[in-house]
């Protein structure tokens, strides 16, 4: 009975028009709980997506976040893990169809949260780890990106927009929002490190993350970006400590 009562109560929290039968005499008081649940989830989303909120404005953001919270309440009692599907929710919103950069930036903000809560890698391969391999084997190796590494590519200027909202200036005049940009994120000991990377470099990292060999990943990157420089990209990622493991080509291990 208590379970059904709690289900009834929860339905009332998500649906403005529903109040549990036993509490119909006291709808005003019931609304305190409904408003409190909504406000706390909206606040959590606002904290998770601060630049997205600046982009669309507080009122619009809060209204959309409240709808999202009613439709997709959290599944686990950890608010830091809440909002993973919010960027896609924004992407599906008809009112934002003409502003795809909003969902792109939200995706970037979520990647930042994921990287932060994953924490820095415990085990990394050393920059010189590839030296021991014969040159003909090297392209066949597969590199496992460390767990906090994230690569976000957008059809819009996600990096320029994000960085422009980090200070007080918010100088957006010179940004070409339609310029496709890619961002690399990883967690260091004191927080998340972010940088803009070339599109080819991003495709290369994503392909490695999918388990492709260095050779295949480089081919994919070159197809996406003729300017891709394998040596420079690989050297910079090894220096940054981006990989947790090396696997040889199957049959050669």
């Amino acid at each position: 009975m208590l379970h059904e009562w709690q289900q009834d109560f929860a339905r009332g929290l998500c649906d403005q028009g529903t109040v549990p039968v036993a509490l119909r005499d006291n709808q005003r008081r019931f609304a305190i709980y409904r408003d409190s649940v909504s406000a706390s989830l909206v606040a959590a989303l606002g904290e998770a997506f601060p630049v997205t909120r600046l982009l669309v404005g507080d009122r619009f953001f809060d209204a959309v976040a409240a709808d999202y919270a009613r439709q997709e309440p959290p599944h686990i009692p950890r608010l830091s893990a809440y909002g993973g599907t919010y960027p896609d929710y924004l992407r599906r919103l008809p009112t934002l169809h003409d502003l795809p950069y909003v969902a792109d930036v939200a995706q970037l903000e979520w990647a930042r949260i994921e990287a932060y809560f994953t924490g820095p890698a415990v085990q990394l391969i050393q920059p010189d780890s590839l030296l021991g391999y014969a040159p003909e084997i090297l392209p066949l190796l597969r590199l496992q990106p460390e767990a906090s590494l994230r690569v976000i590519t957008g059809e819009s200027a996600i990096w320029s927009i994000w960085i422009a909202h980090q200070g007080n200036s918010q100088d957006l005049e010179h940004i070409d929002v339609g310029e496709a940009q890619a961002v690399r994120l990883s967690c260091a000991t004191d927080g998340v490190v972010m940088s803009q990377i070339a599109l080819g470099h991003a495709v290369f990292l994503l392909a490695l993350g999918e388990g492709h060999s260095i050779f295949t990943a480089a081919e994919t990157a070159m197809a996406a970006d003729a300017g891709f420089d394998l040596q420079a990209s690989l050297a910079s990622e090894l220096r940054l400590g981006s990989f947790s493991d090396i696997a040889g080509p199957e049959g050669l291990d």
């Binding site: 208590l2 709690q6 289900q7 929860a10 409190s36 706390s40 309440p73 599944h75 009692p77």
Partner: peptide
């Protein structure tokens, strides 16, 4: 209080009836 029902978390301290069942 309670905050979870059917796998959803409502991020609030929701009230319980002080019944024998509760």
């Amino acid at each position: 209080a309670w905050s979870v029902v059917d796998g959803h978390y409502y991020n609030d301290l929701l009230p319980l009836p002080y019944s024998t069942e509760a």
